[in-house]
């Protein structure tokens, strides 16, 4: 209903119409961050992004991995934010790296986390309680 508001109500409703042709960041439920230009949407917050990319961030490093045209199912959308062109998208201390480098950094981060989990399992026999 209100998501299908006509032109007059766009600015007083939750309609995504005001975001059309704007550069957006879409946060997904699995934690991924997609960037792109909104070309279509519906009342379920299904959205179509043109020139989409995934912004992978690991610590101080980031990389925008190009994806092309994406249709995102509304269920998986957490938040849609308009990127203000006047402002920096990321803090100045962050470094843009290649896709290969960001994947390497992701892998290292994942392995460090897994190691912590497996060490904990190995120590369980000591019965901390």
């Amino acid at each position: 209903m209100s998501s299908w508001a006509g032109p007059d109500e766009i600015f007083l409703s939750t309609s995504l119409a005001g975001f059309l042709d704007k550069k957006l960041i879409v946060l997904l439920r699995d934690g991924r961050k997609l960037l792109g230009t909104l070309c279509s949407f519906d009342q379920f917050a299904n959205v179509v992004l043109q020139g989409a990319c995934e912004r992978v961030i690991v610590g101080e490093l980031y990389c925008d991995v190009p994806l092309g045209l994406y249709v995102i199912r509304g269920e998986n959308v957490v938040l849609i934010g308009e990127l203000d062109r006047e402002k920096d998208e990321l803090p100045a201390h962050m470094t843009c790296v290649s896709e290969a480098e960001i994947r390497k950094a992701e892998k290292a981060e994942r392995e460090a986390r897994d190691l912590k989990g497996s060490m904990r399992k190995r120590m369980e026999f000591l019965d901390f309680d």
């Binding site: 939750t14 995504l16 961030i57 957490v78 938040l79 308009e82 990127l83 962050m94």
Partner: peptide
């Protein structure tokens, strides 16, 4: 669903990708 204006993230350091977001739609 909620639309917010003049937004700022409470823990900005943890969410650097939200730095330039001022308007957003929240499911």
């Amino acid at each position: 669903n909620i639309k917010l204006e003049n937004t700022r993230v409470v823990d900005q350091d943890k969410y650097p990708h939200m730095l330039s977001v001022r308007n957003c739609f929240i499911r």
